[in-house]
């Protein structure tokens, strides 16, 4: 197989390693990974901020 480029090493290792054991929260029937929970939480926060923050030039 002709694969070119820099071989895989540790030159570009990620500063935050997410490859360890996953973290999960259990709440009754709900089982959610902390990573997904963070993504969904940030989504809701960004949505609410988009509704509340004043838009530049919006006030005339």
């Amino acid at each position: 197989m002709a694969v070119t480029g820099m071989p895989r090493g540790h030159a570009l290792a990620a500063p935050v390693d997410l490859n360890g054991t996953g973290h999960y929260v259990h709440w009754g029937v709900i089982q959610l990974s902390v990573a997904n929970l963070v993504v969904i939480g940030v989504m809701v926060v960004v949505f609410v901020l988009a509704l509340l923050l004043p838009f530049p030039g919006g006030r005339r």
């Binding site: 997410l18 490859n19 360890g20 054991t21 996953g22 973290h23 990974s33 902390v34 990573a35 997904n36 963070v38 993504v39």
Partner: peptide
């Protein structure tokens, strides 16, 4: 879900 601690 995703392997490790990644969002899926």
């Amino acid at each position: 879900n995703e392997t490790g601690d990644y969002p899926g």
